[in-house]
């Protein structure tokens, strides 16, 4: 009996070892009934894109608190595109100044959540925007 499940990867690109937030998210995604792959800290965009494809996830959630999101987030999207995996939705979170939002949205990031975003809002966004396949 077919049952589609949403698979999400939570990843931390770049030189940023602060993963409390990413772990809290991973846990709350689990409690929302999603399957969550957590890749740990210090990942290159190349590692993240490769892992997302190997795991066939629906969504990648990038977390960055180091200030390098303007470079790292678009690079992940670019790599997914290059490998024909642009159906994987990418969202971002962390310490991201408002003025960077347009650049990130322009690069293809579908949503950005910053400190104070309620967990329910993130889960609701996922439920609304990521449909289990077919």
């Amino acid at each position: 009996m077919a049952k589609r499940k949403i698979r999400i990867m939570v990843a931390k690109p770049g030189l940023d070892g602060h993963d409390r937030g990413a772990r809290v998210l991973a846990r709350c995604f689990r409690d929302a009934g999603f399957e969550v792959i957590y890749t740990g800290c210090h990942q290159s965009p190349e590692q993240i894109a490769a892992a997302a494809i190997q795991e066939d996830v629906d969504l990648v959630g990038l977390s960055c608190l180091s200030g390098a999101h303007r470079t790292l987030f678009p690079r992940v999207i670019e790599l997914l595109r290059e490998q024909g995996a642009d159906d994987i939705v990418v969202i971002g979170g962390g310490i991201i100044p408002d003025q960077d939002f347009p650049k990130l949205y322009g690069a293809g990031i579908k949503a950005i959540f910053t400190p104070g975003a309620p967990l329910e809002a993130i889960i609701d966004w996922i439920r609304t925007n990521i449909k289990p396949r077919k």
């Binding site: 499940k5 991973a26 846990r27 995604f29 689990r30 409690d31 929302a32 009934g33 999603f34 399957e35 969550v36 792959i37 957590y38 890749t39 740990g40 990942q43 290159s44 190349e46 590692q47 993240i48 490769a50 892992a51 190997q54 795991e55």
Partner: peptide, 18 residues
């Protein structure tokens, strides 16, 4: 209870991702 899961084995193997 929720049907969710945390798949964490991969963390240890990420250096081979590429």
């Amino acid at each position: 209870f929720t049907g969710g899961a945390i798949l964490g084995d991969r963390i240890r193997m990420q250096r081979h991702a590429e």
